[in-house]
């Protein structure tokens, strides 16, 4: 199947992504959303600032969001600067990247009627295109995410994305339907040119792509 991949630009596109995300998150986790405004520490589940759309014949099949600032990991992950720097590794990387400059990939959903064809891996890969995750950036940002370990091993790893586990994510009630002791949540970091393979980082957006062409080795999950 071929999919059109582009960033949501219009008000209507953003609303389509928000309603699709809200439907899945509410049904599965009982989560509701509110506007992200200034520094409200406890505004759980604020809306992402940007959305990537994966469309089939104009129909929204999947989407993923991006926080341009105030990332979930920073606000709720209780990660110290030194812990981020430790995850970055060598001094050379620390020199190039500033752990104060973070963006976060978040709220990946695949509409129920499009499941079973690797779209979650495809969409997360597309979300790491520089044309999306580095949009409106004068210098590259580090990319972060928080999620269950199974998200990292079953979606990130098979799509070819490398990730660095920073530390366990604190336990919040809002995640009680999401995480479990067998599948705990962590905060993760990706260093763009090191951890994101060129086929994703350089993926031109907007564009039209086959899932199989970008996920060649992976059997359908």
């Amino acid at each position: 199947m071929r999919f059109e991949v582009r960033m949501a630009r219009s008000r209507e596109d953003v609303a389509r992504c928000q309603y699709a995300i809200a439907e899945v998150y509410n049904r599965q986790y009982g989560v509701v959303f509110s506007e992200d405004h200034h520094d409200l520490e406890a505004k759980i589940e604020p809306w992402p600032h940007r959305y990537l759309m994966v469309l089939h014949d104009g129909d929204l099949a999947s989407t993923v969001g991006l926080y341009l600032r105030n990332t979930y990991v920073e606000r709720f992950g209780q990660v110290e600067r030194a812990e981020f720097e430790h995850a970055l590794g060598g001094e050379k990387t620390i020199e190039v990247y500033d752990v104060g400059r973070l963006r976060e990939i978040t709220k990946l959903i695949v509409k129920p009627e499009y499941r079973g064809q690797n779209l979650s891996r495809f969409t997360i890969g597309c979300g790491h295109s520089r044309y999306f995750c580095q949009t409106e950036a004068d210098a590259p940002y580090l990319i972060t995410f928080c999620g269950k370990r199974s998200i990292a091993t079953r979606i990130y790893a098979p799509s070819g994305l490398h990730y660095r586990c920073v530390k366990p994510f604190p336990i919040y009630k809002v995640h009680e339907l999401y995480r479990s002791p067998e599948d705990p949540m962590d905060s993760y970091l990706l260093v763009p040119e090191v951890d994101i393979p060129p086929r994703w980082y350089g993926l031109e957006l907007p564009g039209e792509y086959e899932v199989a062409e970008l996920l060649p080795m992976e059997p359908a999950s």
Partner: peptide
């Protein structure tokens, strides 16, 4: 007017 008692926990 947060949505749930859990959201207030964090606050």
């Amino acid at each position: 007017r947060l949505a749930t008692p859990e959201q207030y926990d964090a606050l």
